[in-house]
Nucleic acid binder design. Structure first.
Lengths: 199, 199
DNA sequence: AAAAAGTTAGTGAATATTCACTAGCTTTAT
DNA sequence: ATAAAGCTAGTGAATATTCACTAACTTTTT
């Protein structure tokens, strides 16, 4: 809920943690590796975070806030829902293309083991997306731009699922292919499949 | 590729590993816990498997083979693709409802850390699904039952993505809600959205 | 001067794995 | 038939390594 407003050093640690995640996966994210990436001793990490859990939660919360801001900026009420939806996904695509490590963070459940706080943080991120996507889908349906064959919530679920799977494939492929290209392709596919039957 | 045909004891170990996964998550799957679940010493595990990695790979390969068999049985060429698709997802649903731990196994990447073999085994499972789903979608399109607004591969991607996300939500909710109900709902939604425009 | 941020050098707990050894069953040799 | 040899599946102890985390001291910043 609250925004503890992280220090610049904390932000560097978050970035370093992200870099490790994308390079070595969840298992590689240890205090030792984090300290090495930062170029100082393990114990120094604890000057900035109480625990490893706190590092991960801070990272996820930063990501949530980042998404929140980006979505707020990119969605323009004067535009039509289709264009907004497109813009939202493109924005996500551009962000993840530049910060692949966050893909590991969001789509990883190895992170949440045992930790209720991390679990909650991941759910928060999903909620942020849901909260911005759902109104767009809903509006699109009301304006007759999207099919109303199924409820807006369920349509949103399908959108998010397809997007998540694309990200997962990118990650498993070790970020080797061009996610922007594949992503654009997916977006246009999703918009096509959302079209209502009668024009 | 090959099928090493596991022993009965190995099968028991795989089952025990699954039970641990669903109870304690990926982090709980240790040799110690596995041995405890089996009721014998840690070292005895190594009579049956060379390593922990081998246990996990065996479990995933068993799952792949299991899916393969189920899909082969459930898909009937004489039925129409829509019904077959429905049957496939229902079959998956029923299986996962009875073996929730495998959801953890397939959708978890905590498992695949560093291990190339485990990574490959997970991809194999996804391939099995793809291999059976794609022909159904393709046939449906050819018969005019499904929309051909987008290629069969991409439609399959969307189906799998939506299904995966549903499973993920179930898992994050700690298997608390009725996956069959939600799953049925999703299936009917997917079929609706796949309908071609002109009847 | 004092607070903030770093260091070295540890802690205990957990991890997967290996070791030498054994009870009980089955196969083989005499 | 029976003794010898081998096999299967266990045991408990010990291994090295890694983990998150801490105490006490020193450097740097303000």
């Amino acid at each position: 809920m609250s925004s503890p407003s992280i220090s610049s050093r904390q932000f560097e640690l978050i970035e370093a943690a992200g870099k490790i995640l994308s390079k070595s996966g969840v298992g590689g994210l240890t205090i030792k590796n984090l300290a090495k990436e930062m170029g100082f001793a393990e114990s120094a990490v604890y000057r900035h975070f109480d625990s490893k859990e706190a590092v991960v939660v801070a990272m996820l919360d930063y990501l949530a806030k980042n998404i929140e801001e980006r979505l707020r900026q990119v969605i323009r009420p004067q535009k039509n829902p289709g264009e907004n939806l497109k813009a939202v996904f493109q924005n996500h695509l551009a962000f993840f293309a530049g910060h692949p490590h966050f893909v590991v963070a969001v789509f990883s459940d190895g992170l949440m083991e045992e930790s209720e706080k991390i679990n909650a943080a991941i759910l928060r991120i999903m909620q942020v997306n849901q909260n911005h996507l759902l109104p767009l889908v809903s509006q699109g349906q009301q304006q007759g731009l999207f099919t109303d064959a199924i409820p807006a919530e369920d349509l949103t679920h399908i959108l998010m699922g397809a997007f998540r799977l694309q990200m997962f494939k990118w990650r498993v492929a070790q970020f080797q292919f061009d996610i922007s290209e594949k992503g654009e392709h997916l977006i246009s596919n999703l918009l096509k499949i959302m079209q209502p039957c009668k024009n």
